[in-house]
Amino acid sequence: MTYASLPFLLLGVVFASPALAGKAFVTNERGNTVSVIDTETWEVTEEFFGGNRPRGITVSPDGKHLYVCASDDNLVRVFDTETYAELPSLPSGPDPELFILEPSGHRLYIANEDDNLVTVTDTQSRTVIAEVPVGVEPEGMGMSPDAKWVVNTSETTNMAHFISTDDYQIKHNVLVDQRPRYAQYTADGSRLFVTSEIGGTVSVMDIDETGTPTLVDKISFEVPGVLPEWLQPVGAKVTSDGKTLFVALGPANRVAVVDAESLEVRDYILVGQRVWQLAFTPDEKFLLTTNGNSNDITVIDVAAEEAVRSIQVGDQPWGVVVIE
């Protein structure tokens, strides 16, 4: 046994034993619903109205409140994760697509695709506390683990904008490839991955102790028999040990497994059609993928790096979040 696998194993022991059923929540973009999946039995237990064109989805730190970007309602809908009752909504600015909640649960940072803005909403007072002008078509939202930086990607400007959460000012801009979709820090905050859907790459940035990014590499993908233009990186997640990066490749119907240190692509896991967003179970044993064109979720065994099952959900699943 290597040292590297030790923490992983411990995590598994801690979380696996009490067999407490978790829940995965999936937004169905076209079906206007949220599907609830029991992560013990992998059965869909509920499907409830999630707003009009629900896309980005996240959960409060205490696991009690579910936040959903209802893009066509121009607001963030809030649901109780136990009863699925709808709670008072949050203002989001127009056409919210993706957002990120700070670890304290107070401030929600929302990308407004139509207005070249990032809206900062206070989840307690339910008010907008700041609007940050960014590039054209803001989309991806990432946050540094110390919560000092929010990274927004703008799809037409093709930049990652580094917004300080102290004063809401942009301090750094990094050019990346076409249509950047998603920004994901490693758990130690030393690296940032930004996917570019049309560029077909993942930009890799080293982050120094002041939070300043340096673009160091770009990861490309190649699958025999799949045309390069179908390899469109969208969602991305990195294991908390910082060793493995998973990248959803959209219409290529595959999730790439990347060694997050050497940046070598290790494998491609075949999943459902038009794989979009990804989420780990809290114990990181499983990775869930939303497959928009096959209306299902693929469950990937993280350690084995293979797909273990698929679950039918609603119409055009888009986002996913998992709670214990």
Binding site: V174, L215, E222
Partner: peptide
């Protein structure tokens, strides 16, 4: 699999801070 996109990187490796 890994293909370095040297050309792309060379022109865009500027951090515009």
């Amino acid at each position: 699999f890994r293909i370095a996109q040297i050309v792309c990187l060379a022109v865009s490796m500027l951090v515009l801070a």
